[in-house]
Amino acid sequence: KLATQLLVDLAEGCHTHHFNSLLDIIEKVMARSLSPPPELEERDVAAYSASLEDVKTAVLGLLVILQTKLYTLPASHATRVYEMLVSHIQLHYKHSYTLPIASSIRLQAFDFLLLLRADSLHRLGLPNKDGVVRFSPYCVCDYMEPERGSEKKTSGPLSPPTGPPGPAPAGPAVRLGSVPYSLLFRVLLQCLKQESDWKVLKLVLGRLPESLRYKVLIFTSPCSVDQLCSALCSMLSGPKTLERLRGAPEGFSRTDLHLAVVPVLTALISYHNYLDKTKQREMVYCLEQGLIHRCASQCVVALSICSVEMPDIIIKALPVLVVKLTHISATASMAVPLLEFLSTLARLPHLYRNFAAEQYASVFAISLPYTNPSKFNQYIVCLAHHVIAMWFIRCRLPFRKDFVPFITKGLRSNVLLSFDDTPEKDSFRARSTSLNERPKSLRIARPPKQGLNNSPPVKEFKESSAAEAFRCRSISVSEHVVRSRIQTSLTSASLGSADENSVAQADDSLKN
């Protein structure tokens, strides 16, 4: 292990032709098999893994070397290190390495390699500790012929580059190093199909959405987006994914797998022009299946994007999809995704031109529960009313008269009656009930004795009459309010007539 670390330190600071010789020695160290011998017992696995620490030291050392060589000349050094790393990870899946030390190597290698970024000039870069990406002036992410390196360097940008540029090249004859992302992409596909350690798979799935944002990485080298989509959909639809995973937390289920895969599918929607129609349908189907899991909100957001990006695919699945959405409970976490999906859909009339009455009724059935102001915040309630109004205007004229009683009944049950079921009123009724029952229970537990009763009969009569009056008032709060309003209006009217009579009498006395 110490000798391997010494080789790594020497290679990191070497800029001459001896660098390749040092890498040859490190490569021989990495070539050791990580498969346990067949006769190895389970209690000896930890000791055997400790004997392979030099392999881990070599791989982690290459990660440090690549981070240094990416910004220094010659660029061919970075290319050689990158290829060695990718080849080593491929061996893991070729020979099915399952030892804990092998999983640790893959975890740290993917953690580093999935941080690679590219700008519009195809320059590769890595983020620093502050998250700012520094791009290399010597390494690009696409394949290029050595003699055409300078031509590639002087080509115009596709868009303004992001991030601070690296140091300027030493001279005009500098050759750019090619670090094609397709090599890593193929290893990522192998990981999605064969990885057995949940920690490694979770890391890859968590980092892929951010990497897919940099389309330069994908399009400048032959990366098959179709295969990526197929691998992701197979993970969700195939039963073998959960069987092969180990190291998963207790209670791990298909729902947890959906939570990890759906963000990658959402990021892949922007590549729909490069996906086969069959793959697009598979993607939409997987998102529909996710509606029954805890990732339902993410799936609804993804389907909203699909309705804009892939209208030809979503239009066929939309009638059944809208009916499925009615089975989702009206909760605060689902309110905004569902209502925004319906609001977006209302502005795309070509998608729902074939809707029948059942689909329009489903839209109103989804939106009406969110009009309850005692359960949802003001934004959700306003958005629900907006969706109902928009869809009522957009639905066909023959359907409107049939939906009017349905909508008014839903609004009455969710908006008007919600004020009668407020917690304050319920607590008031509970308190009044307890007050009504309390005197009775006290009389049963403690019967009054005439000799020891010091309270006069008049006081008892007053208290009983007050309790009886309170019971009468607490029967119905709404009736009490109505009666008080009527009494107030009658009182004001009587006072007004009394004032008029007094004024008339005063005038008569003055005349006399």
Results as ranks from 00 to 15, higher is better:
D130Q: 13
R123C: 04
K152T: 13
L60M: 12
V225M: 11
L70P: 01
L99R: 01
S178D: 03
C141Y: 02
M84I: 07
G238L: 07
R175C: 13
L176G: 10
S234L: 07
V133L: 08
S211Y: 06
L184H: 03
L192F: 04
P137K: 09
S182K: 03
T241A: 12
K240T: 13
V187P: 05
S150K: 08
K129T: 11
V187C: 14
D226F: 02
S49I: 07
N128W: 09
C229N: 02
Y93C: 00
L228R: 01
S182T: 05
C191Y: 00
N128L: 07
L73K: 11
D142R: 06
S120C: 12
T162F: 13
L176N: 10
C229V: 09
A75C: 09
G131V: 02
K94S: 11
Y97K: 01
E147D: 13
G206E: 13
R207M: 05
G125M: 03
V179G: 03
L208E: 01
R117E: 02
P239W: 08
I105M: 04
S155W: 11
V133A: 05
L201A: 00
G247K: 06
L91P: 00
Y82N: 01
S49H: 07
S211P: 05
G238S: 10
R175V: 07
G131A: 05
Y181V: 04
G247M: 07
G177Q: 09
S150E: 13
Q194K: 10
L62R: 00
R213C: 05
G156N: 12
L228T: 01
K193C: 12
L192M: 06
P209N: 09
S150L: 11
S76G: 08
L236P: 02
I89H: 00
G177K: 05
S155C: 11
S182Q: 04
V200F: 01
L236V: 07
R80N: 02
G156V: 13
S221H: 03
G238M: 07
F219V: 08
P137W: 03
S159M: 10
P100V: 02
H92V: 00
P100L: 02
A118Q: 02
S51D: 09
I105A: 01
R106A: 00
F135W: 06
L183H: 12
Q67K: 11
V179D: 02
V64P: 14
V140I: 09
R106Q: 00
C233M: 07
L205S: 00
R207W: 02
K129G: 14
P100E: 11
P157M: 12
G166I: 13
P127D: 04
S178I: 13
I89Q: 00
C139Q: 07
E195D: 03
R244W: 03
L217S: 03
P137F: 03
L126C: 10
L217T: 03
G61D: 01
S159D: 12
D54Q: 01
P137I: 03
F252P: 10
A173C: 14
L192A: 01
M84F: 02
L73M: 10
F252E: 02
Y93R: 00
K199M: 11
K94F: 09
G131N: 08
V59S: 04
H77L: 02
M235A: 02
S150T: 13
Y97T: 02
T220Y: 02
Y93S: 00
P164K: 12
S230T: 11
E250P: 11
H88Y: 01
S211I: 13
T154H: 10
T241N: 06
L228M: 08
M144G: 08
L188Q: 01
L212Q: 00
Y181H: 04
R213W: 03
Q227F: 04
V64D: 14
M84N: 03
S224M: 04
S49V: 06
G131R: 05
R123S: 03
I105R: 00
E83Q: 11
V81M: 02
S159V: 14
R207S: 03
L121P: 02
M144R: 08
P239M: 10
E147S: 09
E243F: 05
G149I: 11
C139F: 15
Q90M: 09
I65Y: 01
R186Y: 07
S178V: 09
S230V: 07
E53H: 06
L245N: 02
G166S: 11
L192V: 08
K202S: 09
S96Q: 14
M235V: 05
K152R: 12
F252R: 02
L91A: 14
V216T: 14
Q190Y: 07
H88D: 00
A231P: 01
R175H: 13
H122W: 02
C229H: 03
C141G: 02
V132E: 11
Q190L: 09
E145K: 09
R246Y: 08
E151T: 08
P157I: 14
A102N: 00
S150G: 12
C223S: 04
H95G: 07
T154W: 14
A75E: 06
L52T: 05
L183D: 11
S120F: 09
L176K: 14
P164E: 10
